[in-house]
Design a protein around this nucleic acid. Sequence first.
DNA 1: TGAGTAACGTACTAGTTCGTACATTAGGGA
DNA 2: TCCCTAATGTACGAACTAGTACGTTACTCA
Lengths: 217, 217
Amino acid sequence: MTSVDKPARNNGRVRDAARTQAEILDVATEEFARAGYAGARVDEIAARTRTTKRMIYYYFGGKEQLFTAVLERAYAVIREAEQDLDVDGLDPVAAIRRLCEVTFDHHEQHPDFIRLVSIENIHEAEHIISSERLSRMGSPALDVIGRILAAGRSAGVFRGDVDAVDLHAMISSFCFFRVSNRYTFGALFGHDLVAPERREHHRAMLCDMVVAYLTAG
Amino acid sequence: MTSVDKPARNNGRVRDAARTQAEILDVATEEFARAGYAGARVDEIAARTRTTKRMIYYYFGGKEQLFTAVLERAYAVIREAEQDLDVDGLDPVAAIRRLCEVTFDHHEQHPDFIRLVSIENIHEAEHIISSERLSRMGSPALDVIGRILAAGRSAGVFRGDVDAVDLHAMISSFCFFRVSNRYTFGALFGHDLVAPERREHHRAMLCDMVVAYLTAG
DNA sequence: TGAGTAACGTACTAGTTCGTACATTAGGGA
DNA sequence: TCCCTAATGTACGAACTAGTACGTTACTCA
């Protein structure tokens, strides 16, 4: 009965606030993406972390704020990637192809992000709306599209009645749909939208379609 | 203490199994679309019905089966509408335009259906997969696309490397995205994708894009 | 007409789930 | 070195939620 078997002092790990928060966000991202907002379980998130549920409330305040934090980080990652987008020196057609390809690849590489966005739409974007950070977050991709469109227009190769935001929606929709709706689409049509052997074809299809549209006259 | 104040005999309504089931499905459709599968409350569905929770279990067995029944009915409605699609007598370009327009209109008119499909994708289509009825349900729209593509190809106006299912995905993606992602898109870009004043432009945009792609050589 | 059954209602329960009160410890600065 | 606070853990509770046991009533058909 001496104080021999002390609790194993936190598995050998030291205290690290930043690391704990990051780990919670990692697990929460997976769990929310997997089960939706209401379907996600705070206890489950805590269990898959090296810390306890108490810490979720300590750092984030609650389930709702945790979900907002997850969204904020997920969007920040995407925006950062968009900033690396470089189409300087390319002619308008090549530039728009490049943009389509990069958008296509990003969506394919971030299925969890796409699930989170789907979930946030079910909740009518309430977390984005009430997040200062997300409301302020611009979109580098939109600026790039605007510049490409302007260049193509003044070079006389693009039609003039296209809005940057609408074109962004058009491009995103196919990239997003392929990933977000692959399950129902696959179950109903027996056709896997993200099958590797169809990837190149879909990518080219998107580029061709956008270029054909912009250059049609 | 005589038997005067009897319960008001069911609000004047008579017993009607079909009507009760339909009413449950109506309310359940709204509630699942509003809150997602896990977020929907069986008690809430029952409360908004003229019957009780007991009847949900009596007729459907449980929450899961109720959701499946909701999905089955929602898809049946869409498939029925697709069967009214008539493009006979139109040349391939006009036919594909017509198909795009009808698809566009359908998506716009059935936002609840789109929400249900989004939700079902979060659950990786498990309900569709385990539903005999949904698995057997073909897609008239796909057949129509196949015929239009074949006609356009043999008339020499369409390119030959386009699959009907891929084209269906392409067309659906924009129609679906406009509705499914309007909230996050609106919150982030301050641009309402389903604003009435943009409707005609989006509709024409979709048609132009598909035709430009198919006729590009 | 009366009996059997489909349709329906009430009240309850077992289990879950978010959130918190309370206790403890590590580690940096005075 | 010692104290103060950020960081962490444990145990619990109140509210909710899917599902059910049991009882009742309206139709229908022999």
